[in-house]
Amino acid sequence: MSLLVAEALSHTYGSGDLAIPALHEIDLGIQPGEVTLLTGPSGSGKTTLIQIMGCLLRPSAGRVMLDGHDISRESEKKRNRTRRENFGFIFQANNLFPMLTAIENVMVALDVVGRETKARAKERAAELLAAVGLGERLTAFPANMSGGQRQRVGIARALAGDPRIILADEPTAALDALNGHRVVTLLRDLAHEKGRAVVIVTHDPRIEDLADRIVHIEDGQIAVDGRKNGT
């Protein structure tokens, strides 16, 4: 059973002579408990697709179904809430507040999603950081951490709202092979052990081994959709 479903999703940036078609009638279901890789050449529409599925961008046509609702047509306020309650985002530039420590950055996310009481937030943030292997670096500032560590703080932050769906855009692009592998392993564990749906946009062939499913996009359309164990 798919958790998040794109139905005949199309998107065009701009209009008239300046219109740039980005997606064309995409149908895609995202399953919980597995890691889906989105691959494809630059400009093929991968980022646009996860922006729309993650409730950050409204499609020109088509629907995005979550729990039987079309979340792409809801009000801004509702979409805000949908993101807060269902999605975790991880991006290449991790956008951590430079003047906040690792644990404070995670606590901000907990504050935003409002899941924890103030007293519990610190404890919970420490747990989240420990789970990504940063239990020893709670009070480090981003400037004093490695790229891989910063990216893992970003993952801990994305998990603050205990999201069912994790969307990551090029999470390993700025990392070396070892750190990249580590980050993706973390995401895979979240899918396999916690049943989260994980979608990773990537150009990185090194992480294909860790995926359960690879969706290849070209010119805004799905060219190949393959599972490891051939379902």
Binding site: L56, R84, N95, A158
Partner: peptide, 18 residues
Amino acid sequence: DRLPEYATLRAIGGGPGY
């Protein structure tokens, strides 16, 4: 200076009021 961080807060579901 903090626009990317603010955009992130919006993305993870923070309202404009935050």
